[in-house]
Structure formats: structure tokens, C-alpha cells
Amino acid sequence: MIIAVPVDDQSAPNTVCVSFGRAPYFLIYDIASAANRMVHNSGASGQGGAGIKAAQTVVDGKVEAVLTPRCGENAAEVLRAAGIKMYKTSGDSINENIEAFKKGELQPLQDIHPGLHGQGE
């Protein structure tokens, strides 16, 4: 199973990013092979639609589950359309969250926020 986690930085040590759409990078992790890679989120610096672009990036990475502290409604719509499940992270450690996910300890992400669209426009 391939999972994605929004992360703050490309280099280690690294933490889970508080935002999904505006996360600068995604860690794409293959649980079966333990292979991982960083994908740049080109939507992060965009004027708008960051969540849509971010979700597209994740979908293109053949991801099956996303571990994130929060997610906006547009991103959630894209992820749902692709059949990707969302789980709520706990704390900002990437490794601990991946381990918790493997043990089935992470809860499905329920509260999809309405987005922060149009702010500053």
C-alpha cells in the first residue's frame, strides 16, 4: 500500500505539515517495500486552488491513503473521487504516524474544513 504524508521540508529530520494543500512536499511511502520519495507540491505557492493541485499530485503518485492533520473540502473532493482514504495524524512525527497507521491506530479524518479560499484576494 502506498501512502502520502504532507511534510514541512524535503530534508530529514522532518515533521508532518499542518496543512495538506499548502504543504511544500509530500512523502510518498510504499509500506510493502519501505521505499520512499519526496514529491514537490507545486500548488503550495499558487494563488488559489492549492488543495486541488496538491490532491492531483497525490493521486498521480498512485497513493491509496493520506495521513494528514487536516484537509480542505476541494482537496477532499479530489481524493474521494480517486478513492483515496484520509486518516488523521496524531502529533507531528512522521515515523510514529506511519507506525500507528500500520497498526490500524489512526482514525479516519472526519472534519473536512471549508477551505481558506479567497483570503487576501
Binding site: 486552488g49 486541488i52 492531483q56
Partner: peptide, 13 residues
């Protein structure tokens, strides 16, 4: 440039 479009699972959103 506003990311109003996404292509997911053989469908344009």
C-alpha cells in the same frame, strides 16, 4: 493558474 481543474480516474473535475 487557479487550479480549478483536476484529472482524476479518467474524469475531468
Amino acid at each position: 493558474k487557479f487550479n480549478a481543474l483536476a484529472y482524476i480516474g479518467d474524469k475531468l473535475l
